[in-house]
Design a protein around this nucleic acid. Structure first.
Lengths: 331, 331
DNA sequence: TTGTAGGCGTTATCAT
DNA sequence: ATGATAACGCCTACAA
């Protein structure tokens, strides 16, 4: 049986109200009873029942982290950032993924917002529309969106456009003029921003943007890269470089196929990825890529949400973090 | 304000007890009131308050997943397995990591077991001693240990010894007689089992086990591999093969250094890793390794814990899953 | 079939 | 400084 306030109260000869005050460090308790109560609590190994406390205070001390897919290394990395912030976190993290569940994303939002199981939510690159997200506002459950700018909620994201611009510019610096772009329209990827950056960079140097040079992959895995390479080879514009907003795994697939086809990298084909995943440093040649500060995004997100929950930060806030162009060997 | 049973009861002209029964699909409710109640509930967007329900039923419908370190790809993969089981899970997953917290693992166990915030716990390769784990039993919080056999709790793990035996035997099949072993004594790695497998395999073929051929790394990252390679080169037994129970990242580090030193793989040095991480398929040559069924482990774990929680499975259970030797190019 | 009443373990507001 | 007492929102006997 669980040890409750009552048990302690009985042995200490006081009321459970008093014990509660002691446990919660409230003032106006005589040192004597405080000590007595604390001693007994320790003896009995008392821990407050979190659920009962939650009911009484209307606060669960839990934060929901909603992700589309735990298989994404990006998502996992942000999650690590959330869990490894320096701040001393007194909230439990509850994990929800929206892929392969029999509940739609929208239903999950509804439920989470109304069940009062969490005090706030962090959404990592979920695809929810403003309409679907509204419920968090209605129920005044604080919320921050990660990896996607969302006018509707607080958000922390990365300057995707600039990152793509940098990558493309670098390629042009190296003398490339026919630069392909491989992207993937998965809901959680900010593809359009990156495409815009690519396009801006081109136009900035008076190189005309050609639709034929932008390919779409179905997914963002290594095999999508090998498929993309085949398309690249057949391309009439004979690209000498590829920028891969679809992500590093796709870029790695391209590298692999290129090597198989005896194309030297970066001389025969220069390749730039996006994200900077661990494998970027194991592939050969090492992958040049646009790094996203994933841990930092998680860190910001958890701090923002807690500030919100605790009412310390009420204004809408958007935090843009900077990508970093990482030059390695593939370009 | 939150919509409660009472609100619905009022509009339906019944008692909140009745509404509760409808919401929970209890029998003996007239179809008429059932419909009326359900209609109103939907109109008001009613969702039961999970906390209040938890207090009343003494069940939180949450499972704690306790991991040493979210940065481990092994851990993450098991977590994916947990979240992607086919079973229709009606439990929330709460995530706890024990590294870099100001609470010790042991304190966390205590708290989790007594706070009644979770109905059960899955421990992924945590290092807790039997003494520390006892509290889950005391408080009768069901528990399963993953990746480590634990007499004390239910557990699901992998035949590490056999996996290591297979790997070593394969190397001997290929004619190697001087086989180094690179291991890492991190708390969550079943190093001894793997070492035993290596040793057994050797002795089975009458090759004597030499302590000088087993190296220890500090951690299990890529740099630990590059360091290990230096040691390997200096080794007086001139190993022609390495088995790396420390994990694939370490093996990859060794590969990288070997290539730098112009040693051909597998001719000059054969290398076998342990785990089969994604990077094993991007490194060149592709890494031959012992695959652990990580998703499957997660799947088993979540199913076991739920059966336990719901009283469907009371006997202590140990599930051993099989590793699979994956032949690629490095050996 | 439905209502009454009590309890789950806390916290919080009054009195005293 | 402490005690009564009433929430918090839901569930569950038991009674009607």
């Amino acid at each position: 049986m669980q040890v409750t306030l009552k048990d302690i109260a009985q042995r200490a000869g006081v009321t459970s109200a008093t014990v509660s005050m002691v446990i919660n460090n409230k003032p106006n308790i005589s040192e004597k009873t405080r000590q007595k109560v604390l001693t007994i609590a320790r003896e009995l190994n008392y821990y407050p029942n979190a659920i009962a406390r939650g009911l009484a205070t209307r606060k669960s001390n839990a934060i929901g982290v909603i992700v589309p897919n735990l298989a994404s290394s990006f998502v996992v990395r942000v999650l690590q950032g959330i869990k490894s912030t320096n701040r001393d976190i007194d909230y439990t993290v509850q994990l929800f993924d929206t892929i392969g569940q029999n509940e739609t994303e929208s239903q999950l939002f509804q439920r989470l917002a109304r069940e009062r199981r969490i005090d706030g939510a962090i959404l990592i690159g979920t695809s929810g529309t403003d309409e679907e997200l509204k419920v968090f506002k209605e129920e005044s459950v604080p919320c921050v969106m990660v990896a996607r700018k969302c006018e509707f909620l607080d958000s922390v994201y990365v300057n995707n456009t600039q990152g793509a611009y940098d990558a493309t510019s670098y390629l042009m610096d190296k003398g490339h003029t026919s630069i392909a772009c491989v992207l993937c329209r998965k809901a959680n990827l900010p593809t359009d921003d990156r495409l815009a950056g690519y396009r801006n960079a081109l136009e900035h140097r008076n190189i005309s943007y050609r639709e034929e040079l932008v390919l779409e992959t179905h997914d963002d895995g290594i095999t999508d890269g090998v498929n993309a390479f085949a398309e690249l080879r057949g391309n009439s514009h004979k690209p000498t470089a590829v920028f891969v907003p679809a992500g590093d795994m796709v870029a790695i697939g391209i590298i692999k196929e290129a090597k198989k086809a005896n194309i030297s990298i970066p001389e025969g084909l220069a390749i730039v990825g996006f994200d900077d995943i661990p494998a970027a440093e194991v592939v050969e040649p090492l992958l040049t890529t646009v790094r996203q500060p994933k841990l930092e995004m998680g860190d910001y997100a958890i701090n923002m949400i807690i500030d919100k929950i605790e009412g310390r930060e009420s204004s809408k806030k958007h935090k843009e973090l900077m990508t970093k162009f990482i030059v390695r060997e593939s370009a």
